[in-house]
């Protein structure tokens, strides 16, 4: 007797959209702090809300992934792995776009709620970062556009140089408050602004 065809019932999936909330909303208080001689040595700002996605190339698809990502200014995050960030996008929009652009060649996951990016810029930026990382920050070794994975104060940090005196530090949101306390303390001797 022929078996009855198995019919799978369509499963209703309600799309739940949670707005991004900055874990530093009540922590990164705007103002001028630390040494108050002259202009601030560095300025901090929290890049929020930001769309963040990780991209990991499938085996043997490293080149294809890099090519497909070229227009997104991907940030290196390990062998054949990247962070892509974008501003002004709706919840999940960047993730969905990357997922279809990289279909079959890379895995994408949305980190917009999982990570926080702190921007630090100013004439003393290298002095502040050098207190936490062994990475050589001289522009010859670490030019704008370059990224590194490192640790600062025992916290895993993804660091990208975005300008001559400007860096962006990406940390897991659960570490962001203690990381913020640590890095602002390192900037106190130079005086800092929070924007």
């Amino acid at each position: 007797m022929p078996k009855a065809p198995v019919r799978s019932k369509p499963v209703a999936v309600a799309e739940v959209i949670l707005p991004r909330v900055s874990p530093l909303a009540d922590v990164a208080v705007q103002g001028r702090f630390g040494a108050d001689r002259g202009a601030p040595g560095v300025t901090f700002s929290v890049r929020h809300p930001l769309s963040i996605a990780t991209v990991i190339a499938r085996a043997g698809k490293g080149k294809a992934t890099a090519q497909a990502l070229a227009e997104y200014e991907p940030r290196w995050a390990g062998p054949d792995q990247y962070f892509v960030v974008a501003q002004g996008r709706g919840e999940g929009a960047l993730y969905r776009e990357l997922k279809s652009a990289l279909d079959g060649i890379a895995s994408v996951s949305d980190q917009s709620h999982g990570r926080v990016i702190i921007r630090i810029e100013g004439p003393k930026v290298r002095n502040v970062l050098a207190k936490g990382t062994p990475v050589d920050l001289h522009a010859d070794e670490f030019p704008a556009g370059k990224s590194a994975l490192t640790q600062m104060a025992h916290v895993g940090v993804h660091m990208t140089r975005v300008g001559e005196d400007a860096f962006e530090l990406s940390v897991f949101r659960g570490f962001s408050e203690s990381f913020w306390e640590w890095i602002t303390e390192q900037a106190e001797e130079f005086g800092y602004q929070v924007r």
Partner: peptide
């Protein structure tokens, strides 16, 4: 080979 020279504490 991916990150350059790093201290042993990172490993």
């Amino acid at each position: 080979p991916h990150c350059g020279t790093r201290p042993v504490e990172e490993f």
